[in-house]
Amino acid sequence: MSATTNYRLEDRLTLRSGGPVLDLLDGATLNGTGGRPRWDVELNGYVNYGLFNLGLYGRVQGPTRIRSDIAASDLRFSGRTWLVLYSFLKVDKILDRPWTKGLNVNVTVENLLNDRINVTDRNGDTPNRFQPAYLDPIGRSVRVGVRKLF
């Protein structure tokens, strides 16, 4: 099990000498999709019992903001909780056959909570470009995979 946290006291960028300073923690942005979160936490845990393996990865980040004098361009981005549950099963421990050696079945659930970033402007509206389904079109996803080592 591991946990890592970041708390940024300062995050500024000067594009050229003598030019303006962009404060990414206080409303400046490089790509138009939010500034830098002041804090974030990453968690990773893994349990192995016999033939079952189960793990959980998580990332929680704080809210961000893009500041503007125009109300429709002054944007607030909510925080986000991203959880990924993953598991794999070693088939050769269940079925003792020559063809099962090195065969794994994987199951992954990404964005377990189906959490999406919500964006609002100063008026409380969500601009069309920042609708949650546009920012994260997949949402929660479940994947099943089979892997064979030869």
Rank of each mutant, 00 (worst) to 15 (best):
F77L: 12
S78T: 10
T64R: 14
F88R: 06
I117V: 15
V119I: 02
R97Y: 10
K90P: 09
D115G: 04
L75D: 01
N106A: 03
L95I: 15
G102Y: 03
Y86E: 04
T64Q: 06
D92L: 07
L95A: 13
E110C: 10
D125T: 09
I117H: 03
D92E: 13
D92T: 00
N106Q: 09
N123F: 08
R116S: 05
D69V: 07
D115A: 14
K93C: 03
V84F: 00
V109C: 10
V91L: 11
V105P: 02
L95M: 04
E110F: 11
I66L: 12
K90I: 11
S68Y: 13
N114C: 03
G62C: 11
R116Q: 12
N118A: 06
T108W: 06
L103T: 13
K93Y: 10
D69F: 08
N114R: 10
K90Y: 10
W82Q: 14
F88Y: 15
V105R: 03
D125Q: 13
I66E: 15
V107H: 00
R122C: 08
L75A: 04
F88K: 01
G124W: 01
T100L: 10
T126R: 01
D115V: 08
K101Q: 12
T100N: 08
Y86T: 13
G62L: 03
A72M: 04
I94R: 04
N118R: 12
L103I: 07
D125E: 02
N114K: 00
G124I: 04
A71E: 15
L83H: 02
D69Q: 08
P127T: 02
A71N: 12
R76V: 04
I70C: 01
T100W: 08
R76Q: 07
P98D: 07
R65M: 05
L75Y: 06
V84C: 03
K93H: 11
I70N: 15
N104R: 09
L103S: 09
V119T: 03
P98E: 00
R97P: 05
I66A: 08
G79S: 05
L83S: 00
R116K: 14
L112F: 06
